[in-house]
Structure formats: C-alpha cells, structure tokens
Amino acid sequence: MSRLLRVIVGCVALFILAPIIVVVVASFSDTPSPEFPPRGLSLRWYAHALAETAFTDSAINSLWLASLATLIATPIALAAAYAIVRIPFPGRDGLQTFLLAPLVVPSIVIGLAVLLAFSGLGVRDVGLRLVGAHVLITFPYMVRTIIASLARIDAVTEEAALTLGASPLRAFWHVTLPLLRPGLIAGMVFAFIVSFDNVSLSLFLASAHTNTLPLAILNYAEYNFDPSVAAVSTMLIAASLAAALLLERLVGLRRVVGG
C-alpha cells in the first residue's frame, strides 16, 4: 500500500483518537484543571468523581434506564424480527421500513414530540416517558441485528424440530434461540450503549430529580472545569472499549452498527 495513504490514514486515526486520548491522559492529572500534557500524575480526580453524588446518582439512573429499555425492547424486537424473516406476509418490506423509522427521525424531534404529547395527554411520569422513548430508539438496532442474524440461520433446523413433533414455541426455544444467541446478545449490548449514551432525548424528558449520567456530566462541566469529568469519561471509555471488543467477538461490530 502506498506510503501516502499510510500517512493520510495515520492523520485520520490521530483525528479520531485525539479527543479520546486527551480525556484519558487528563484524568490522571493532579492539577485543578485538565492539562495535556499533565504536569503530575494522580488518581485524586477518580476519588473526587466517585464521591460526587451528581455522578453516582445519575449513573445509577442511567444503568436502570438502559437495562429497563433493553429488557423491554428485546422481546418486542425478537418477535418482530422473527415475523419479518420467517413468515411471508404482504407488505413485509414496508413494515420493515416502518419498524426502523425511529432511526430516521432526528432524536431532538422525538424528544420534543414525546414531551409535548405526553404532557398534553396528562402523562407526567418522568420514568415512564424516559423508558418509553429509550425503548423506541433502542428497539430498531435490536430488530436490525436480530434480522441479520436470523437470516443467516437456516430455517430447515427449526422445520426439522417441528416435523419431529415439537411445538412451534419449543422449536424456537430449543433450536433457533440458541443459534441466535450471539446476535441477540450483541443487539442487547449495543441497545444498552445507545440508551446509556443518549443525550438529546433525555435532555427533554429527564427532570432535575431523574437525571442521567451524560446529562449530569454536561451540567457539571458547564460550571466546573476540574478533571473529575475526565475521570468519569475515562471510566466510560473503558466500558465502551470492553463493549466494542465483546461485539466484535460476538458477531462483528459492523453488523451491529449497520454498514
């Protein structure tokens, strides 16, 4: 491969990684504001971040929200994906597009629309509208990953189970589901990330009492410039990297992200 291409790709890689690297390095600095390169190394901002209730409380909210959204979206997506792949019915293509619609509507529009409609209709529960909106945006990613995985599993194995007298549910549970497991887990992991990282929906739907971690980071960073934000961010980067490696192993990152 030509040297020019290597140099260009090196620069692109630097551009991609630069904001991530500076955050990680800044998190270990011992000065009251993040500096790159740092003057001294310390873990004090990690201690500071972990003692900051704005981060810990919202992190617990985010974990709950992402878990709930993923767990609710999973069976809905599984059922829908199964129907799309395995049962021929009229209008299948159109329906598939409809199922992926939450991906093409800008999330600031979804956030606003849900806020206006739910409050207009008297649904004031913050948890309910947050979970509803997060299920909506995580669900299409799961549908897509499950459809891609199901399409690669030969329907013949399931048919064999049916011929041998298994009920459709039993055949699905014992034959198709185990084969589907990597794709399903990958879809769930990615859905969890999408929900956990979401800002633009939560921005409209969360409240002062029910905050998510990304919102808490934004709020904190608006008034404080100490590196505890870098420390929290570094922990998030470590989690993202772990998730990326897991997804790459399970089914390949590209299939999950779509491309």
Partner: peptide, 25 residues
Amino acid sequence: GPLTILALSPLLVSIVVSSYGWIVL
C-alpha cells in the same frame, strides 16, 4: 478488528466524552 474499532470509536464513545475531549484540545 482493530481498524473497525478505530473507525467506529466516535460512535462507541459517548458524545459527551468526545465533546469534553474537544474542550480540552
């Protein structure tokens, strides 16, 4: 594998985190 993770990392890392990185830079 590594290249895919590199190319997709802006998407995998929270937007709040990368925004903070740009502030530092």
